[in-house]
């Protein structure tokens, strides 16, 4: 059954303790993996501004644990001190809206071009590395025991899964194979898996002129190597054209590594973090292929999806640059 504002209005009040009156309910986005609604209501007479995130049920890269885990990870990271939206209730799917969760709306801007260019956000950019590192520290210190059952995805698991997806497309692209061979041979072990956000990048942060207000989009969360989040934050695709500023187009890797060390007491091994940057670039390349093939195989008849296929060339270049940097770092005295 298609989700409508009326359907939400019928189902949601029964999930909440107290008298709920919904005044407005509108769809914000119908993304590939989540259907997001803004719900304005009163709860026992008090005004509420909520975000309802539902499973779109359409596409899955095979890496998402599902909306219940997404909500639980967000809650647990929030309890550990990460700025997140408070989860109001989790929907199991039995209610008639599919899996999902309701959370409080947070203030802030998430659009990268605005955050990178608008003078209003200059103070937020100046403090970004420190705040991002503090958020990461909170995520990574979240006790894994409270998320028992959340899948572990170490480097080798991800590399094999992504390469299998790449091979399924049937294109012989030697750069992907070169990088796969290197990532496989150099995969770090993950002795103590921690909570990993999995998509920690500009675009998934709510930022005001006071800085980071919330970390969004926990749909790729898992247990794994904390360095994955640092590497993904530096993937060139998330620098939005500012190649010379690896951390989200805002700052240097060294600034992030030092801020992370200050927040956690853990010294970042640049080789280890840069391994994950390469793996992240490889992942982005496979995701671009995935989107292109969703068009080519007739699943999503979108011209935009078709165009994304020709962005794979960007990821091939970026993978080669990352790999060259890694080999040079490896030979540095």
């Amino acid at each position: 059954m298609a989700i409508t504002a009326e359907r939400i209005g019928q189902v949601l009040p029964a999930r909440l303790a107290g008298q709920v009156e919904i005044s407005r309910c509108r769809r914000l986005t119908a993304g590939a993996s989540a259907d997001t609604w803004r719900v304005q209501a009163t709860l026992d007479g008090q005004p509420q501004d909520w975000i309802l995130r539902l499973d779109a049920g359409a596409e899955d890269l095979g890496m998402a644990p599902g909306k219940t885990w997404e909500a639980r990870a967000q809650q647990a990271a929030g309890e550990a001190g990460c700025p997140v939206a408070r989860v109001v209730t989790i929907l199991s799917g039995q209610e008639g809206l599919g899996e999902g969760y309701l959370m409080e709306a947070l203030p802030g801007e998430s659009l990268p071009p605005v955050l990178l260019k608008d003078d209003r956000y200059r103070p937020a950019r100046d403090g970004f590395c420190q705040q991002a590192a503090q958020a990461l520290a909170a995520i990574h210190r979240t006790p894994p025991a409270v998320l028992d059952g959340l899948p572990v995805q170490d480097a080798l698991t991800q590399v094999e899964q992504l390469y299998a997806m790449h091979q399924d497309y049937g294109e012989a692209l030697p750069v992907f194979s070169l990088v796969y061979g290197w990532l496989k041979a150099n995969a770090p072990e993950c002795a103590s898996p921690a909570l990993v956000h999995g998509d920690f990048r500009l675009g998934n942060f709510l930022i005001t002129d006071n800085g980071l207000q919330g970390v969004l989009d926990w749909e790729l969360t898992h247990l794994g190597d904390p360095m994955e989040d640092l590497g993904w934050l530096c993937v060139n695709a998330w620098r939005f054209g500012r190649r010379h500023l690896p951390v989200a187009g805002i700052d240097s890797r060294e600034a992030l590594y030092l801020a992370y060390q200050a927040a956690t007491g853990i010294t970042v091994d640049p080789l280890h973090a840069r391994y994950w940057e390469l793996l992240g670039t490889f992942k982005w390349g496979v995701i671009c292929q995935y989107q292109a093939y969703s068009y080519l195989r007739g699943h999503v008849p979108s011209l935009e999806r078709a165009a994304i296929g020709r962005r794979v060339a960007e990821t091939e270049y970026d993978m080669l640059v990352c790999l060259q940097d890694l080999t040079e770092l490896n030979h540095a005295p």
């Binding site: 390469y163 012989a172 030697p174 992907f176 194979s177 070169l178 796969y180 061979g181 290197w182 496989k184």
Partner: peptide, 13 residues
């Protein structure tokens, strides 16, 4: 050819 090379690359270099 690209396919042979890709296979060799995937074994590690």
């Amino acid at each position: 050819d690209a396919a042979t090379l890709a296979e060799a690359f995937s074994q590690g270099v």
